Each structure stands twice: as structure tokens, then as C-alpha cells.
Measured scan of single mutants.
Amino acid sequence: SNREKAKQAFKELLRDKAVPSNASWEQAMKMVVTDPRYSALPKLSEKKQAFNAYKAQRE
């Protein structure tokens, strides 16, 4: 689905920018907000969900 693709793109973005798994949401956003993939997930709640999944995978 498109939403799954968007989630993957967002997680790839976090990986590409080397966002550490112990980063806070605010720290992570400063690192990725300028990338076009930041807008892949329109809802903030979805971004946070993908971010938390990313962190869980990295730990």
C-alpha cells in the first residue's frame, strides 16, 4: 500500500541521515525536516509511529 511505502521511505530517511536510536523526536526532526521524504507521511502521528518503529529496530 501507499501508506506502507511512505512508512518505509520515512524510515529510510532516518537511516540515511544516521539518526541515532536514542535521539528524541525533536532532535530527529531537526535532522530530517529539510528532506523531501519528510513529507511522505502526511500525519504527524504516522511520522512518530514510524520513528518509534525505527528506534525499536535500531536498538
Rank of each mutant, 00 (worst) to 15 (best):
M31D: 08
L41D: 05
Q27K: 08
A28T: 07
R58F: 10
P42R: 07
K47A: 04
T34I: 02
E59T: 11
S1I: 12
L41F: 00
A56K: 13
Q8G: 07
A23Q: 03
V19N: 02
F10L: 05
N52L: 13
K7F: 15
A56Y: 06
R58V: 14
Q27Y: 03
L41R: 03
R37Q: 04
N2V: 00
S1T: 13
Q27T: 14
D35N: 05
V19W: 02
A6M: 03
V19E: 06
K17V: 03
A18Q: 15
A6Y: 03
K48H: 07
K48L: 15
L41Q: 07
K5F: 08
S24C: 06
S39L: 07
N2R: 07
R37K: 11
K7W: 13
A56F: 03
P36V: 06
A9Q: 13
V32L: 10
K30T: 11
S45V: 04
D35L: 00
A53I: 06
S39F: 08
A9I: 14
Q57H: 10
D35P: 00
P36S: 06
E26G: 08
P42W: 02
T34P: 03
A53W: 02
K48N: 03
P36C: 06
E12P: 00
D35A: 01
F10D: 09
E4P: 03
S24P: 10
S24I: 01
M29H: 07
S39G: 12
V32H: 12
S24A: 09
A23W: 10
P20L: 02
R58S: 13
M31N: 06
S39E: 15
K55M: 06
K11N: 11
N52D: 13
L13P: 04
D16N: 00
L41N: 05
R3W: 08
Q57V: 08
T34S: 13
L13K: 06
S39R: 14
F10P: 10
K47R: 11
P20M: 03
W25K: 09
A40R: 07
L13N: 04
R37L: 02
A50H: 02
S39V: 07
N52M: 14
Y38I: 03
S39D: 12
Q8A: 10
L41E: 10
L41V: 10
F10Q: 07
V33F: 09
K55T: 09
K47E: 04
P42G: 10
K7D: 13
R3L: 14
N2E: 12
V33D: 13
D16R: 01
S24L: 02
A50K: 01
K7H: 14
T34G: 15
Q8D: 13
Y38F: 13
E26M: 07
Q27C: 05
R37S: 04
L41K: 06
A18S: 12
L41T: 09
R15N: 14
N22D: 14
Y54W: 15
L44P: 08
K48T: 04
A23M: 11
P20C: 02
W25G: 10
F51E: 03
D35E: 06
P36Q: 08
K48G: 01
S24E: 07
S24Y: 01
W25D: 11
R58I: 01
E46T: 02
A53H: 04
Q8R: 09
N52C: 11
N2K: 11
E59D: 09
V19F: 00
P42D: 13
E46S: 01
R58Q: 15
L41W: 04
Q27P: 03
E26W: 02
L14A: 04
E26T: 13
S21I: 13
